[in-house]
Simulated assay, not measured.
Amino acid sequence: MATTKRTTKSPPPQPAAEPAPCKPCNGTGSVAITVRVGRKHRPVGKQDGFCLNCFGTGTDPDS
């Protein structure tokens, strides 16, 4: 009798897990910053700013 070669199947590759969205910017990469003007620094509106937690990527750096 001839010997047969037996191999084991490797498990199928797991799909890559999606990174969690950044909490301060909700995954957008930008946050609203209040604009203040005048001597009393009264708020007049909001301006889009760069998210300093994720540096604009939108993904949580801790995950």
Rank of each mutant, 00 (worst) to 15 (best):
G45T: 09
T3K: 15
K5F: 04
G49F: 04
V31Q: 01
A2P: 15
N26E: 15
F50H: 14
K9N: 14
P12N: 03
R42A: 14
T28G: 07
C54E: 02
G49V: 05
G58F: 04
M1C: 01
G27H: 05
K40D: 12
T7V: 15
T57G: 00
P61A: 09
A16V: 07
G45L: 06
T28V: 13
T28I: 05
G49R: 13
R39G: 12
T7D: 12
Q14Y: 00
K40I: 02
V44P: 03
R42H: 08
F50S: 12
C54V: 02
P12A: 09
D62M: 03
K9R: 15
Q14L: 07
S10Q: 13
K5I: 13
L52P: 01
V37D: 11
R6W: 08
D48Q: 15
G29C: 05
N26L: 03
D48I: 02
R42C: 04
L52V: 13
D60C: 07
P13S: 10
C25D: 00
A20Q: 15
T34H: 05
T4Y: 04
T57H: 03
M1H: 04
T4C: 08
N26T: 09
R39K: 11
G56I: 02
K9W: 02
P61C: 05
C54Q: 04
N53V: 10
T57R: 01
P43S: 13
K5A: 11
P11V: 02
G38T: 05
G49S: 13
K40G: 10
V37K: 14
H41D: 14
V35S: 06
C25H: 01
C25Y: 00
T4A: 15
V44N: 03
Q14F: 00
R39M: 12
P13D: 04
K40F: 11
T3H: 07
P21C: 07
A20E: 14
T59D: 06
R36Q: 12
T57N: 02
K5W: 01
Q47M: 15
N26S: 12
K40V: 09
V44L: 08
D48N: 13
T8R: 12
R6T: 09
P61L: 06
V31I: 10
I33M: 11
G38M: 11
G58L: 01
T7G: 12
V44Y: 02
D48A: 14
L52E: 13
T8L: 03
A32R: 09
A20M: 11
G58M: 07
V35Q: 09
P61M: 07
